[in-house]
Every structure is written in C-alpha cells, then in structure tokens.
C-alpha cells in the first residue's frame, strides 16, 4: 500500500496502478503519450542494445567470460530457432527475432519488480503522491500493438517483395478455393487470417502481462489487510512470481517464434 499520502480504498489503489503517466491535456485523446511506457520500453531497449553491443565489441574468440557466455547462449538459441523455422535467406530475421525476444523478455521482466517500488520512487521524485507510473510496458496495449504492427508491416513488405504485388493479391484471393466465383469469399477469409496475425500477437502478450500485473496488484492489496491475510499474500505472491517467471519467458518466446513463422510464411511462394 502507498506509504505516502492518505490511505486509498482498494478500488482507488487498483485504479492508481492501472493509470498511465500520460501527457497531453486530455488523456483520452489520440495525440497524447504514455510517458511511462515509452520511458521503460525505450530504456530497456537501449539497455539491451548497449549490453549486447558492448559484449559483442569485446567478444573474444578465445575462452569467453560469463556474461559473454550468457549472451552467446541467447544469441545461439535465437539463431538456432530461426534456422530451424526460417529457411529463406534474410539477414533481418535473426536480429529481429533476437531484438523481439530479449526486448519483450526485459519488458515482461518489469512485472517481477514489486508493484509499488517504482511508482513510489516516481512519486518521491515528482513530489506528488498521485504521480502515476506503470512500469510494465508490455501491459500497455500500445506497446504490444506497436510490436505486432511492426511485424505486420514486415510481413506485408516481404510478401510483396518476394511474391510481387500480383502474387500477394493472388494469395489473398485465390485461396483456399481456387475458383473465380469464390474470390470474394477467399478475400474475406484470407484478410481475416492476415489481420488476425498482428491482433493475436498483440493481444496474447498484452493479455498475459496485463492479467499478471493485475494479479500482482490484487496480491499487493492483501498486505494492507490484517497479518493473516498478509501472510497468505506473501505465499501467493511468491507462488505467482515463480509461475510468472515461466509466463514472461514463454510469452517472449512465443512472440519471437510467431514472428519467425509469419515471416517464413511471407517468404514462401505457393
């Protein structure tokens, strides 16, 4: 519970935790920013790139250090996943998969930090106990959708690049029923299939992380009640945290794998 400021009702507490640090006069207008999401996602992205870049620059071909080992393990894991699934020749796919995997994992990992820590720090810095801060960028629909739209853009780009516009249009209209009369039906079916890709990517990640965050918030509420419930809360917190280690890794992996699979499909000429 908030240590500074007046006591919040559970509803206010949850609302407080689910409100973004936004910019702009009207928080519901399109031209406003979720400063916290951008701050943490870009910060983590920069951290990821800086870390991997500095290790890559110093990488020895001899006996590697522990950090280099860890990073090489991740890189090799991603590389082998890409090689197993993606059979075309494209220099972008593997670094793309690495970026998605590590970045999404790091953003998901923000969920493991106790829900009140960073908002409290932010409130102290801002000097306003009402300061909003959501630290899990992937629990923000904007972030997951932007990732998914990025992947979607690449799917369309490579579909057209590999198959040409006519090939892409044919793929949308002549499947699954290769009959002229069925073109509208095909188009509807294939468009849904195509659009379902980014939406499912975005919503899957968002749903998992949002639910995870919400449960952490609910568990955090228990600490404000009596000792018995707080003790139960500790147990639940620990259990959910351990389970969540699996969830965040799995979600990062699924996002990466599906990206590879979708791009692999985009490269295939039927």
């Amino acid at each position: 519970m908030s240590a500074t400021g007046e006591a919040l009702t559970p509803q206010e507490y949850i609302e407080h935790h689910l409100t973004h640090w936004g910019s702009g006069v009207d928080p519901n207008a399109f031209w406003s920013w979720h400063i916290d999401s951008l701050l943490f996602s870009v910060g983590l992205g920069v951290l990821f790139l800086w870390l991997f870049r500095s290790v890559g620059k110093k990488a020895t071909t001899g006996v590697p250090g522990k950090l280099q080992c860890l990073i090489e393990m991740i890189v090799e894991f991603v590389d082998s996943s890409v090689k197993e699934t993606f059979h075309g020749r494209n220099k972008l796919i593997a670094p793309l998969a690495l970026t998605i995997f590590v970045w999404v994992f790091m953003m998901n990992f923000m969920d493991m930090i106790p829900v009140d820590w960073l908002p409290q720090v932010a409130a102290l810095i801002a000097g306003d106990h009402n300061q909003h801060l959501r630290v899990v960028p992937t629990a923000d629909l904007n972030v997951t959708f932007s990732l998914a739209l990025g992947v979607f853009g690449l799917i369309i780009y490579y579909s057209i690049k590999i198959k040409g516009i006519s090939g892409f249009v044919k793929e949308l209209t002549l499947q699954p029923f290769n009959v002229k009369a069925m073109i509208p039906v095909n188009f509807v079916l294939e468009s849904v299939t195509l659009i379902a890709k980014p939406i499912s990517l975005a919503l899957r990640l968002f749903g998992n992380l949002y639910a995870g965050e919400l449960i952490f918030i609910l568990i955090a509420l228990m600490y404000g009640a009596n000792v018995a419930i707080a003790a139960l809360g500790v147990t639940l917190h620990l259990g959910w945290l351990i389970f969540h280690i699996l969830v965040i890794t799995l979600q990062a992996f699924i996002f990466m794998m599906l990206t590879i699979v979708y791009l692999s499909m985009a490269h295939e000429d039927h």
């Binding site: 936004g22 702009g24 207008a29 399109f30 031209w31 406003s32 920013w33 979720h34 999401s37 951008l38 996602s41 870009v42 992205g45 990821f48 790139l49 991997f52 870049r53 290790v55 890559g56 620059k57 990488a59 020895t60 071909t61 590697p64 280099q68 990073i71 090489e72 890189v75 590389d79 220099k91 972008l92 593997a94 670094p95 793309l96 690495l98 970026t99 970045w103 923000d140 629909l141 904007n142 972030v143 959708f145 932007s146 990732l147 739209l149 990025g150």
Partner: peptide
C-alpha cells in the same frame, strides 16, 4: 490507443535496425 503506438513502432524499427547493424554481426562472428 494513443500516439504511444507510433513512438513505440518507430523505436521498434530503430532497435531492430541497430541490432541488425551493430549487435548481431560482432556476436555472430565471435
């Protein structure tokens, strides 16, 4: 959904580009 989406997408592409240009090659070559 707000402008965060756009900023985030831009960041995403910059990160992927940076990763492809400066992160992946040295690690892979090592």
């Amino acid at each position: 959904i707000n402008a965060t989406l756009i900023g985030q997408t831009v960041a995403f592409f910059i990160f992927v580009w940076f990763c492809m240009k400066f992160v992946w090659p040295p690690l892979m070559s090592a």
